[in-house]
Simulated assay, not measured.
Amino acid sequence: MKGAEWYQADEIAQEYDVKRFSRGGRLIDRREKRAVLEALGPLEDRNVLEIACGTGRFTVMLAERGADIVGLDISSAMLEEGRKKARSAGVADHIEFLRGDAARLPFPDDHFDTVFAMRFFHLADTPAKFLSEMCRVSKDQVFFDTFNDRSTRVLYNWLLPMGSRLYGRDEVHRLVDGAGLTLADSKHDFVLPYGFYRKIPNRLADAFRTVDTAIGDTPLGTQLASVSYWDTRV
Rank of each mutant, 00 (worst) to 15 (best):
E96P: 02
E38L: 00
K129H: 02
R136E: 12
G41R: 02
R99I: 10
I69W: 04
Q14G: 07
V137E: 07
F130P: 05
R119P: 03
R46P: 07
I74R: 04
I69L: 04
P106G: 12
D29F: 04
E15A: 12
T55I: 01
R104Y: 15
E80Q: 15
Y16S: 08
A92D: 15
P127R: 11
N47I: 05
I12H: 13
R26C: 15
A128D: 15
L43T: 14
V48A: 01
T126M: 06
V70M: 02
D101C: 08
L40Q: 10
C53K: 05
R31M: 15
D125S: 00
I51D: 03
K19P: 01
L79K: 04
R30Q: 15
R87S: 03
L79M: 02
R119V: 04
I95Y: 12
F144M: 05
R20C: 14
G54T: 13
P42I: 09
D29E: 11
R46Q: 11
C135D: 00
F147L: 15
D101P: 09
Y16D: 13
I69F: 05
Y16E: 13
N47V: 08
G71F: 06
V70S: 03
G82T: 09
A9F: 09
E38D: 02
T114F: 13
V142W: 04
T126H: 11
R57C: 07
S88C: 08
P106Y: 15
L131S: 08
I28M: 02
S138D: 12
F120C: 06
D17G: 00
G54D: 08
A39M: 00
R83N: 13
D110S: 04
F144D: 03
T114K: 11
T59Q: 06
D17F: 02
G56Q: 10
L27I: 11
K85S: 08
L72R: 04
D113H: 04
D29A: 08
Q8F: 09
D140L: 05
I95A: 13
Q141P: 08
L72G: 07
H111A: 11
E32Q: 12
V137I: 13
D140S: 10
G82S: 10
D17C: 01
H122Q: 07
V18L: 15
V36S: 01
L98I: 01
A128N: 09
E80H: 15
L37H: 03
I74A: 07
A89L: 06
E81M: 10
F107I: 11
C135I: 00
H122M: 06
G66N: 02
F58N: 14
E11K: 04
A67C: 09
P106R: 15
R30G: 13
D73A: 12
F21A: 11
M134I: 07
L123D: 07
A67N: 07
C135S: 04
E15K: 11
K139W: 06
K84H: 09
I74Y: 04
Q14S: 10
M61C: 14
P108A: 07
I28L: 06
A35T: 07
L131M: 09
G56M: 11
L123S: 10
T146F: 07
V36C: 02
V48Y: 00
F97I: 06
A89H: 09
